[in-house]
């Protein structure tokens, strides 16, 4: 499948079968779209010769794979809900402000160790494993977090395995001890900050109803200064209240953060939710952000915006592209009492309980449902140019908005497609400068 799109005065062709990206002039774009193009015969013949040459090289209209993912039942990653409590009360929190629609509690060391043992046992021949500390606010259970890391490293080493640890934190408890520990032990750290003070404080409030911006940004700046060249993301959320979110991304960049992610909110709160009528504004905002992103990069003042980062040359294998995140099969969430769920967004959703780290088994029916769900079972993805870059959307979002893990949520799709086009344009501009 070929996707011909324009960005300002630039024209591109993305070939889904081969994964190749090409630039072309307007007349060629019109011909490729099957639209009338007023061209002299000689020029038209030259364009058609170019198209035929790309076809022969396998870079246009290339056949697409229909290879189903190999169903590995070896566990790869656990999300440890080490705290179902939080010191913030963010209005849009999918996790019910940390409590996950249940009691506020933290995970015991016994449960955390049982989860590590479960991962060791269920990971089979895998050598590279992952544990993500999540909440709620994980640093509210910092002692257990630290002891779990030590135990995980010890148990993995015994088996010739390695665990990559990640923590997602709101930054409120990032003191010197936490900064030193996370910088030493975490492969990646995700730090929640929504951008401008007024935007952040409008939704991310403390238990006492006060804005958290001033405390959080000071802690996160201190953390990032100590982080060196290790991975981190300052990760924010935008809502219907700040559709001018490019200003928030640029605010974060101007605050000294060079690895940034800003995600559309997932909520059913009427005043915050992203709706279809917001899409034109959001798409224009992504373009405005891309323009500034390119300008800063050209001046040597660039930063990494997650959604404008794309690897078309050394990206993941097809197996990965069609099997996506692995939730419910290769990746599971563990809540404080040890129960298992397909992922953090299904936590404490009773019909999706898949067992317990203490039972030592995974519900075979639910696991099969998630293991067989892939790009080729997603409804509507077959005609989408972004399918091998997206893998069919988030199962949890699909389920919560559409009632089915295999039915993508159209608003998420629209934003994904726009971001992919922006990322391709950013890549093309970078390549152009390098030449």
């Amino acid at each position: 499948m070929r996707h011909v799109f324009s960005y300002r005065d630039k024209h591109y062709i993305y070939d889904t079968g081969s994964g190749a990206l090409h630039a072309c002039d307007e007349a060629t774009a019109r011909i490729l779209r099957g639209e009338p193009a007023d061209l002299p015969d000689a020029e038209r013949e030259a364009v058609e010769a170019d198209i035929e040459a790309l076809r022969r090289a396998g870079l246009l209209d290339a056949p697409e794979t229909d290879a189903r993912p190999v169903k590995s039942h070896e566990l790869k990653a656990l999300c440890l809900h080490i705290s179902h409590d939080c010191n913030l009360r963010c209005r849009y929190c999918f996790a019910d402000e940390g409590a996950y629609h249940s009691v506020r509690e933290v995970m015991s060391l016994e449960t955390a160790k049982a989860a590590v043992d479960f991962l060791m046992r269920e990971s089979g021949s895998r050598k590279v494993l992952e544990i993500d500390f999540f909440g709620g606010e994980p640093l509210m259970n910092f002692d257990v977090l630290k002891e779990t890391v030590a135990y995980g490293k010890q148990e993995a080493a015994k088996r010739g395995k390695k665990i990559l640890f990640t923590t997602t934190t709101n930054g409120l408890l990032l003191d010197d001890d936490a900064i030193a520990f996370l910088n030493e032990e975490m492969e990646n750290v995700v730090l929640s900050l929504d951008g401008r003070k007024e935007v952040h404080d409008a939704v991310r409030k403390t238990v006492n109803g006060k804005g958290s911006f001033d405390a959080v940004i000071a802690h996160i700046k201190k953390f990032v200064r100590a982080r060196g060249d290790k991975h981190y993301y300052v990760r924010g959320t935008f809502t219907a209240k700040n559709l001018d979110f490019a200003k928030d991304v640029l605010f974060l960049a101007d605050s000294g953060f060079d690895s940034i992610s800003l995600e559309p909110v997932v909520t059913d709160l009427a005043d915050l939710a992203i709706r279809e009528e917001h899409l034109p504004r959001i798409e224009a905002e992504y373009e405005a952000l891309a323009d500034e992103y390119i300008r800063r990069e050209a001046e040597g003042k660039g930063f990494l915006f997650f959604h404008f980062s794309i690897d078309l040359e050394g990206g993941p294998c097809l197996q990965k592209r069609v099997s996506a995140c692995g939730a419910g099969n290769e990746y599971l969430s563990v809540v404080p009492n040890g129960d298992l769920y397909p992922c953090h967004q299904f936590a404490n959703d009773a019909p999706f309980r898949m067992g317990s780290v203490f039972e030592g088994t995974i519900d075979p029916v639910l696991r099969e449902k998630f293991a067989t769900s892939c790009l080729f079972t997603r409804k509507g993805c077959e005609d989408c140019f972004a399918k091998f870059l997206c893998s069919g959307g988030c199962s949890a979002n699909n389920y919560h908005f559409m009632g089915d893990i295999d039915t993508p949520y159209p608003i998420s799709c629209a934003m994904m497609k726009k971001r992919v086009e922006c990322a391709m344009h950013v890549l093309a501009e970078r390549k152009s400068r390098e030449k």
């Binding site: 072309c24 870079l59 040359e313 294998c317 097809l318 197996q319 995140c325 290769e330 890549l427």
Partner: peptide
């Protein structure tokens, strides 16, 4: 005129990459 911007080095394989 068409100019190729990027093409994959090679496109079904190992599980070493990150898991959202």
């Amino acid at each position: 005129m068409i100019k190729t911007i990027a093409k994959p080095t090679e496109r079904v394989t190992c599980g070493e990459c990150r898991s959202c």
